Amino acid sequence: MKKIKSITLVLWCLVFLLGCKEDILAPLEQDEVAPGMISSPSTVSTAGAVKITYNLPSDEDLMYVMAEYTTKYGKVVRTKASSYINSLTIDGFADTAVYDVNLYAVDNSENRSKPMTIQVRAQEPAIFGIRRSIELVDDFGGINIRFKNPTEANIALVVSYKDSLGNFSTKETIYTKVKEGNFSSRGFSSQETIFGVYIRDRWDNRTDTAIASLTPIFERQLDKSKFKVSTLPTDAAVGWGLPVANLWDRVIAAEGSMWHTADVGMPLQVSFDLGVTAKLSRFTLWQRQGVWIYNHGNPKRYEVWGSNNPATDGSYTNWTKLVSCESKKPSKQPTGLNSNEDVAAAARGEEWTIPLDAAPVRYIRIRVLEVWIGPGGKAAHVSEMTFFGNDK
Rank of each mutant, 00 (worst) to 15 (best):
K3C: 06
K3W: 06
K3R: 13
S6A: 14
T8G: 13
V10Y: 04
L11N: 10
L18K: 01
K21E: 15
L25A: 14
A26N: 12
A26Y: 07
E32H: 08
P41Y: 09
P41C: 08
T43I: 11
A47Y: 07
G48T: 03
G48K: 07
I52Y: 11
I52A: 13
N55V: 02
N55A: 15
L56Q: 11
D61K: 10
Y69D: 12
K72L: 13
R78F: 10
G92A: 12
V101M: 11
Y104Q: 11
V106S: 12
V106T: 05
D107E: 10
K114N: 07
V120R: 00
P125G: 12
R131C: 05
R131I: 00
S133I: 02
E135G: 04
G141R: 01
F147Y: 14
K148D: 15
P150C: 11
I155C: 08
L157D: 00
S164L: 02
S164C: 00
L165M: 09
G166Q: 02
T170E: 15
T170A: 07
Y175N: 04
T176F: 06
V178K: 07
E180M: 01
F183Y: 13
F188I: 03
V197P: 01
D201W: 01
R202S: 10
N205E: 03
N205F: 02
R206T: 02
R206W: 01
T207L: 06
T207M: 06
L214V: 00
Q221Y: 00
D223C: 00
S230T: 01
T231Q: 10
T234Y: 01
N246D: 12
R250Q: 14
A254Q: 10
G256L: 08
S271Y: 10
D273A: 06
D273G: 05
V276D: 12
T277S: 14
F283S: 12
F283G: 12
T284H: 05
V291P: 06
N295M: 03
H296V: 03
G297W: 05
G297L: 07
N298R: 01
E303H: 05
V304G: 03
W305G: 13
W305P: 11
S307A: 11
N308P: 01
N309W: 00
T312R: 07
D313V: 01
N318E: 09
W319D: 13
T320V: 13
K321E: 04
K321S: 06
V323P: 11
S327V: 11
S331Y: 08
K332Q: 15
L337G: 05
N340E: 15
E341L: 09
D342V: 02
A345Y: 04
T353C: 01
P355Y: 07
P360E: 09
P360N: 11
R365W: 10
R367E: 02
V368R: 00
K378V: 13
H381A: 13
H381Q: 12
S383H: 03
E384K: 06
M385R: 04
F388Q: 10
N390R: 07
